[in-house]
C-alpha cells in the first residue's frame, strides 16, 4: 500500500500516456472482413470492447479495436493492439495478466484489474485461445 497522503498516487495511475491512449486510441475502428472477431463487455461496469483481427500464416497482420469504458480498459486495449501486431497467435496465447500490467506500467488495484484485462480477454476469445 501507498502512503496515506500521497496525492500523486492518482497522477501516477492516470499518467500522460494512459490519457493519450484513452483519448487517441491506436488501431481504433473495425476491419472490413476480419478473420477473427469478438465483442464482450464487463456486465458489472458496462466496459465494452470489440477486437477485429486479420491473420496471415498465423501472424496478426492487422488489428482494430472499438470500445467504450474507463481510461484503464480503453488504454490497455489500445496498448495491446500495438503489442500484438506482427506477433504470432501462439505468442498472443502466451500473454497473461503480468504482461498487460507490465505494459501499462501503472499500479492497478484489484477492483480495476478486470478493466485492465478486458482487452486481452476479448482478443483471446476472438482467436479462440
Amino acid at each position: 500500500m501507498r502512503p496515506a497522503d500521497d496525492l500523486s498516487g492518482m497522477d501516477e495511475l492516470y499518467r500522460d500516456f494512459i490519457l493519450d491512449h484513452y483519448r487517441n486510441p491506436r488501431n481504433a475502428g473495425t476491419l472490413e472482413a476480419p478473420d477473427a472477431s469478438c465483442e464482450d463487455l464487463n456486465p458489472l461496469c458496462g466496459d465494452r470492447i470489440r477486437m477485429d483481427v486479420k491473420l496471415h500464416d498465423g501472424i496478426i497482420e492487422d488489428i482494430r479495436f472499438q470500445g467504450r469504458g474507463c481510461a484503464i480498459s480503453q488504454a490497455s486495449a489500445s496498448l495491446l493492439t500495438e503489442t500484438v501486431k506482427g506477433k504470432t497467435v501462439a505468442e498472443v496465447a502466451a500473454l497473461g495478466k503480468d504482461d498487460v500490467l507490465a505494459n501499462l506500467g501503472i499500479p492497478i488495484s484489484a477492483a480495476r484489474l478486470k478493466c485492465a484485462l478486458l482487452g486481452l480477454s476479448v482478443l483471446k476469445r476472438a482467436l479462440k485461445l
Binding site: G9, M10, L13, Y14, R23, L44, C45, G46, D47, G69, C70, A71, I72, S109, A111, R112, C115
Partner: peptide, 23 residues
Amino acid sequence: GDIHAHDLASILDREGICVRAGH
C-alpha cells in the same frame, strides 16, 4: 467531461469518498 465513471470513482476513492459508478 470525458472522465469515465470508474476513473472518477477511483480518484474519489483515494480521497476516502465512496460513490457508485456504473449503470
